[in-house]
């Protein structure tokens, strides 16, 4: 494994008396695609949010490239480092969170203009190129409210890419989508993976994980239960908890495939 692009050491996060992250450490190498799976409430999303300090960890340490920050309270200087760290780490949300008062193109241009200080012309050029890349050239002037969920999520990916990040974190990027729109988003993500983007993805899309991931991490109870190649995790899981989780997922997707009772969330 080459030098890690993204590292977390001993991350702890508590909500009240509940321990959501129980001292998690992980490293993602440059160009590596890591998919995090696990039952809901296992701390997957919190892990991603702590990595960019959208959620303040109670203890631990995060590093992206050469920038590193420890859990707060933060000095003014550290707050600046956190900002740089976020700038170099794209974040794609489950609920897209596009800016509703801006067109698709303006959404993509916003970061480059306000954070990177690009001229409007340069940002527009970069934004258009990225919209073309995610297949939404003709939607540039459209407001998010008039885009489908899949289109919104692709704009959100373009928005993250516009910052030229060193890594992108995806927090259940397809969970809020209608089933028929999942494919278009996964396709964009797959293309990114093939280009060598460093990606850490929380997802329930096992087919996608099997196909695209270099490594799969199984989380439960705020710790990493097991990790390995997709082959190891899906075909030969060592841990009972992993097996049980994969079984539920499998049963659920088979039920929906047979047109049986819809999968409950």
């Amino acid at each position: 494994m080459s030098e890690p692009m993204l590292t977390a050491e001993g991350l702890v996060k508590r909500f009240g008396s509940q321990v959501v992250l129980d001292g998690i450490s992980l490293a993602v190498a440059r160009g590596e695609v890591v998919v995090v799976i696990g039952p809901s409430g296992s701390g997957k999303s919190t892990l991603l949010r702590c990595l960019t300090f959208l959620e303040e960890p109670d203890a631990g340490h995060v590093a992206v490239g050469r920038r590193s920050v420890s859990a707060g309270p933060h000095t003014r200087e550290e707050t600046g480092v956190i900002r740089q760290l976020r700038q170099s780490t794209g974040f794609v949300f489950q609920s897209f969170n596009l800016f509703p008062h801006m067109t698709a193109l303006q959404n993509v241009m916003e970061g480059p203009i306000t954070v990177l200080g690009l001229s409007a012309a340069a940002a527009r050029e970069r934004g258009m190129a990225l919209l073309v890349k995610v297949g939404l050239r003709e939607k540039a002037a459209v407001y998010p409210a008039f885009l489908s969920g899949g289109q919104q999520q692709r704009v959100a990916i373009a928005r993250a890419l516009a910052m030229e990040p060193q890594a992108i974190l995806f927090d259940e990027p397809t969970s809020a989508l209608d089933p028929e729109l999942v494919g278009e988003v996964l396709q964009v993500m797959k293309a990114l993976a093939q280009e060598g983007m460093t990606m850490l993805i929380v997802s329930h899309e096992m087919g996608f994980a099997r196909e695209v991931a270099d490594r799969v991490i199984m989380m439960d109870g705020g710790v990493i239960v097991e990790e390995g190649t997709p082959e190891q995790i899906f075909a030969h899981p060592r841990e009972e908890r992993t097996r049980r989780f994969l079984n539920t997922i499998l049963t659920r997707s088979m039920e929906s495939a047979q047109g049986g009772s819809p999968p409950c969330e």
Binding site: Q87, T89, F93, F99, T114, V115
Partner: peptide, 19 residues
């Protein structure tokens, strides 16, 4: 989520407010 989307781009709190 709107704050978070702004912050995740590396904006400061005040930039998120303003923009």
């Amino acid at each position: 989520g709107q704050y978070e989307a702004g912050l995740s781009l590396g904006m400061s709190y005040w930039t998120v407010m303003r923009r």
